[in-house]
Design a protein around this nucleic acid. Sequence first.
DNA 1: GAGTCAAGCTTACTCTGAGTAGGTTACTTG
DNA 2: CAAGTAACCTACTCAGAGTAAGCTTGACTC
Lengths: 204, 204
Amino acid sequence: MTGGKVERKRRMPRAERERQMMAVAEEIFADRGYLAASMDDIAELCGVSKPMIYEYFGSKEGLLVACIRQARTELAKATTESVVGSTSAEEALRRGLVAFFEFTDTHRRAWSLMLRSEAAVAGPAAAAEIEAGRQEQVEIDLALFKAFLPDAPHQDLEAAAQIVVGACERLSLWYVNQDEVTAEQAADHLMRALWTGLSSMVEN
Amino acid sequence: MTGGKVERKRRMPRAERERQMMAVAEEIFADRGYLAASMDDIAELCGVSKPMIYEYFGSKEGLLVACIRQARTELAKATTESVVGSTSAEEALRRGLVAFFEFTDTHRRAWSLMLRSEAAVAGPAAAAEIEAGRQEQVEIDLALFKAFLPDAPHQDLEAAAQIVVGACERLSLWYVNQDEVTAEQAADHLMRALWTGLSSMVEN
DNA sequence: GAGTCAAGCTTACTCTGAGTAGGTTACTTG
DNA sequence: CAAGTAACCTACTCAGAGTAAGCTTGACTC
């Protein structure tokens, strides 16, 4: 089944074991949902006993938070890097959108952890982690708009940033279920729907 | 504290007891989150023992689903009714948006149940109930766009509907935390950001 | 090699909270 | 008032999160 070597029950240094646990947890959480995932099962799949997970992550929610934080970091990295070298605000936004949709497609498990908010229900720490991720995106968009439209009312730009983030989330769900739609097309849809409206704000 | 009569431990017919249970549950779920809410606590606040809730709702998730379904029905009713009598697509969309934002403000508890998806984690039935609510909104928007832009590619309109629903969700969260923003203004922000883009689709 | 320290790991619990079996009370109707 | 049923209760089971206390293995001194 698994291509690599099997090596059951090896002793591992902490860092490596933590990575393995997070990989297993991400899969189990995404597959079964947070509630239905049991720590005993996760431990067994790691070839290790339950207290080890508690030793390293503190609690079930702590394990989930670690998974979410990792996904969040990767997403922020992917979108941020995609924007460098853009020569216009429009290009920057479009590139960011494409990177975002690509991420949600290639990292489906990680994304479903953040989006389907297996978290909101999990507890305050997990919910906060998710909301922080969204807020991060809002700040990025806001900075972009502010640079492009310095004279537009602040409230308008804030609302616009919220709109983009919300639209991205929802559109990503739709997009990953449409086989014939590419990340570029998803980004295009969003640009077409939003861009004229956004750029017209300067005249308001 | 509570304004009305107290009447502790009255016997009630099923329908009335169910309504009371849902009201209590909505509050507890919204306040503490699904996980932290215990069925024993809800039962006690109803002045009744736990098996009664199981008799009427089957499970904890069943109780949550009932709460969500009620909120969903109310939201659909409010937005649908707000649109009747509109003389243009633009007016219909704007009215629907205003009704939506008003609902999220006046029914905060109900809305937070649906939005913060205290549900996705709860289980498949609750998640399905939430997704059904979103899909309902998508269908409504899609029908509206289709009527106004019969020649635009279907995929474009579908994407547009998803965008509107996603943007609404996110913007509603922002809006309920901004005291100085009215429902009309929130709807305005969305219309300004989206309308020109949407209506230009006809030329594509 | 013997001693010792720590990191990685385990067994065997406790305790909370969802869900249930089986019985009791009180209102209605003939 | 007998009988039936709707509303309700006490007292459990059971799964799964979280923990206490100790075992094992390898590396590093002397």
